[in-house]
Design a protein around this nucleic acid. Structure first.
Lengths: 211, 211, 211, 211
DNA sequence: GATGAATGAGACTTCATTCAT
DNA sequence: GATGAATGAAGTCTCATTCAT
């Protein structure tokens, strides 16, 4: 970060109004506490206290705990979705490793994901949002794999549907580990992922550009 | 009530005391309601009502809601753990498919798994139990894979650690699908699992008994 | 109260279950506190405390404060309605005085009436109930007066509609005074009421049975 | 804004300072909202919003919600009080009708009256003010009626005290109807009032100036 | 043992009032 | 003066747990 003071020379900061700051603080506190203790175990009062504001202030910015949760989830919706599969020329394992690293780098540590299963049980609206997103991703996955299959790159005796959810599981768990702050070896993961997806011959062809 | 012991002599009624029956009913109700609505969303009163007993009766059999939950989890602890990896002679894909089917067949549908992440956040004791179990399983997995690796069956450039959690993810997700009542093609899954684990040459050797 | 022990010799009391007793206590406390401090100034906690039960108990019997209020009002709906006008033979002033005394005797002291105007502002359902009742009574009043008018008993130049609400006002205020515990001279009131209603000639005829 | 003082020279705009205007707006908003929804159901924020000022501004002009209410009541104290009884020569029914019309004409529609009973329950000071006023009025009424009684104008067998509250009830209800915006036939009302007050002979004498 | 009414701590939410800008 | 965000006390209501019958 060179010349950061250049930035500093602009009117202090983007002049985030107090308001904005408090809302941010509440969002951050919500994220932290929800992740740490779970949704039900976290009270609005606690979130407010953690954000150093009064209880009532919480309700200025969010109609209730659920709304705050929704904000958090919406913010993370993109990163919660696994990356898309694309295969440019080059070693697919390395390519994938690179893309994974970039994609998951931006996922800030948060166990918000952990809360999802229980949350989905009780919140139909949330469930719909999430399921829609997952569905779209799933369709995309299937479509991509179908293309690869037609080109004869995949294992010939494996069905797309099962393959899809297996790969999705791997990506989901990868993301989990990242968000938990656990170390992840993207190179290794990419290798495993590719070998699940492609038979050795395909990998070889792709590596040598004979796609 | 004359000759009630005559009834006891019938093999159909295994002399389950009233008590036992009530406890069972409470356990069943707890499982169903927790799975359906989540732990916090289910009240002791509801569980009792669902089990057709009075609220107070709940507390005769369980010291509190948590204890019922613990029972449920303990009951399912085995099935919640993924199966062990063993490789007898024969087509490994078929062998695995058969074993998976048997192993997961006994998992009754229940979303109890879904509750785990949130539950672990708040209940240190539960977390320890679960983590210990997972850990033991993980160690076993690693040990088994190490053996296979030493024998040279695995992909040579893949590390055991990453491979382990990838395979665990696959099994975990498989179990999830089964407990959600979704259809699962064990044959397909076994194929994918085996190819992730073994390179084609190993598979070929195993199939032909040249292990 | 002679021989009260005779009563006492019956199995204690009508064996009002605890439950019933608590509900009664809550109703009584609600009535007293609402009357004394107003609806909004009375909290559920206070009502419970006054009835010597825990706050939560209040909610076993009433879904909320409003429902308790509704019970109270329903209980009093009859007595809140003014008596009907009927004229048998005899001195109308005395007849009326007697009937008023009987009718208002059963009104237990309570300022619940006082709360009505404000309550009606905010509670559409309550407003409808009350207005329907008032309306029915009004129609009855109008009908009765119309009969009397046709018989030529009323002041000839006074319209029924205005007369009706004037008489209703008198009865309403009478009831107010009674429920406030103020002394009321029914004889005097009946005289005034009758003279507002009938010209002296009619009264004379009625007294002498020449109806 | 050139020549703004020209505007000031117009007689229409009495140079109401901004301040004054805001206070007026708050008073108007308070009156409307209190009347419409009741005192407790109206928040200071709402009143401010309705008056197009900030919440804080409310507290510049009134120490609290109650003070605004007090202003409103004080403003209306005169009109809330029933008119005085005076009998000049002429047809008393017509005279009264005329005076009623003038007196109640100035009562702007507002259900503030409706709030009084509940308000008096909780606000001792307000209760005292109101009761004093009512008392003064009552004394005046009694005094006036006593004079009429001594002159032999009233029904001879009716006591002043009861008669007084009956007439007050009629006037109170009349005022209620006016403030609710309901149509009122002053002529009819005056007839009823007079016949309640005076026997036909007195009325006849008064009409013919033989008072 | 069984029952279900009772308890009361504590979460949620509102709003009168204050205060920094 | 004006603004409206912030405060926090207080009311509403739920539910885990206890207890008298």
């Amino acid at each position: 970060m060179p010349h950061e003071d250049l930035v500093g020379s602009f009117p202090t900061s983007p002049k985030q109004s107090r308001s904005k700051q408090k809302k941010e603080a509440l969002i951050a506190s919500g994220k932290e506490l929800f992740s740490r203790k779970g949704f039900d175990q976290t009270t609005a009062k606690e979130i407010a206290a953690h954000a150093r504001v009064a209880t009532g202030t919480f309700y200025r910015y969010f109609s209730d705990k659920r709304q705050l949760l929704m904000s958090l989830i919406e913010n993370q919706l993109d990163s919660m979705m696994p990356l898309e599969l694309e295969w440019k020329s080059g070693d697919p394992e390395k390519l994938l490793a690179g893309r994974l690293e970039i994609h998951y780098h931006k996922i800030n540590e948060s166990n918000l994901q952990k809360l999802m299963p229980e949350l989905l049980l009780r919140d139909a609206e949330l469930a719909e949002i999430i399921n829609n997103a997952k569905d779209r991703m799933h369709q995309k996955f299937v479509k991509d794999l179908t293309v690869l299959q037609k080109k004869g790159y995949l294992w010939p005796d494996i069905e797309i549907e099962t393959l899809t959810w297996c790969l999705e599981s791997l990506l989901e768990k990868l993301q989990n580990r990242v968000s938990k702050g656990e170390d992840v070896d993207y190179q290794q993961f990419a290798k495993i992922f590719c070998r699940t997806l492609f038979p050795p011959e395909s990998l070889q062809k792709m590596r040598t550009g004979k796609i």
